[in-house]
Design a protein around this nucleic acid. Structure first.
Lengths: 208, 208
DNA sequence: ATCAATACGGTACATTTGTACCATATTAGG
DNA sequence: CCTAATATGGTACAAATGTACCGTATTGAT
């Protein structure tokens, strides 16, 4: 579910449409964004370690110089790309919220949503690469924490803080597993685990 | 608990004692191992991306040439270092097994052991870096899976497959969290979560 | 239409890094 | 004690990469 993939733009002169700059040339803002999007698309593919100016330039369809003028350093370009990636996860989180509010906070609905997430290689890689980045640079920790903490906040009102954290941890673990295995964990298995956590009545868990 | 830290050797001429080669020179086997250990010590510190021949040579107290002669490529050196790191985790797993068999498979004992793990920055980093490596190179996937799968195998006989997998996922998630936060999650919280999973009687879970 | 301002593309350079090499030091055997 | 074999350490080189620069093309204003 949820059409993702950062952006999916053509390689030639992306900004088409009714923008103030028609041809695509001389559009600093759009060009900068174009480069960031290329980087955000590339990181889940090749990993943070192999992200270079030249690779980004090639993917974005711009010259090497363009990738250096708009960003003080490669670190800055990386950071902005990671921010875009985090936004993708936040959008996914919003979709999850909508689905749960529609279908209810049941093990079935949560599992179904998680499985869709786990089957999307790019989304899983986005989450993992964010954790990598946060390990290499503590400044990026908030970005990496967005997904998990957002999940806890989403689930806590319905499940209570303990079950919410437990479910979030399980989902994180399942994502990590999916990132280093060809197939995600079995759906029925995950549903049983999440079901156990969600149905538990913790002493300090608010009933609703 | 468990004195870890890869090896903790001095920088000057590590191999002391009653080995066949007293001074430390002309000892290819020991020298090779010395280099691998330095790399295994370095990876959790600086991350896989910043591991270079020169950095390893400096830490091991050997020349640059030594790091290239004993390993066909940097990849090979990295792989062997990762294998050592995986062995450290396996040793930790064995310690966990011993503790659980002694104290029983209770939420309390499992949580206590997990908290000790989470408070050990190096151990946590080892686990995370192994996952990084497996993401970059599928050949290394088995190494990264050792910890989680070993945990499942350890817990399954006592808890059944579902609870075992659930607990392992929670522990993985907690490790990921610890790697990008100053403090691990609250101990009481984790114990409640693990307790819920461990006390659940799943329909298909063997009673013992 | 002309021109100043600015974005652009390609090149160049310094640094880092993986890898190969060679002279020297050290060891073991005769 | 002498010598051949081998380990060692420092150097050298090629490729990759981050970054700076410069001439050119494009744009909007006059």
């Amino acid at each position: 579910m949820t059409a993702n993939g950062i952006v999916h733009r053509t390689n030639e002169e992306g900004t088409s449409g009714a923008s103030p700059v028609p041809t695509g040339r001389h559009d600093p803002e759009g060009r900068r964004r174009q480069i960031v999007l290329a980087a955000a698309e590339l990181i889940p593919e090749v990993g943070l370690a192999k992200l270079t100016h030249r690779l980004v330039a090639q993917r974005a369809g711009v010259s090497l110089g363009a990738t250096t003028r708009y960003f003080a350093s490669l670190d800055e370009l990386r950071s902005e790309a990671l921010r875009v990636m985090a936004e993708v996860l936040e959008a996914e989180l919003a979709a999850t919220r909508a689905l749960l509010e529609d279908e209810g906070f049941t093990p079935r609905s949560l599992t179904k949503d998680l499985m869709a997430f786990l089957h999307d290689r790019e989304l899983v890689r986005i989450g993992i690469e964010l954790v990598f980045a946060a390990n290499a640079d503590p400044v990026l920790r908030p970005l990496a924490n967005l997904w998990t903490e957002g999940l806890v906040e989403l689930l806590a009102p319905a499940l209570g803080p303990v079950a919410a954290r437990g479910a979030a941890l399980v989902m994180d673990g399942a994502a990590m597993h999916a990132s280093i295995n060809d197939e995600p964990l079995d759906e029925a298995l995950i549903e049983q685990i999440l079901g156990t956590l969600m149905r538990s009545g913790f002493p300090d868990d608010p009933p609703e």
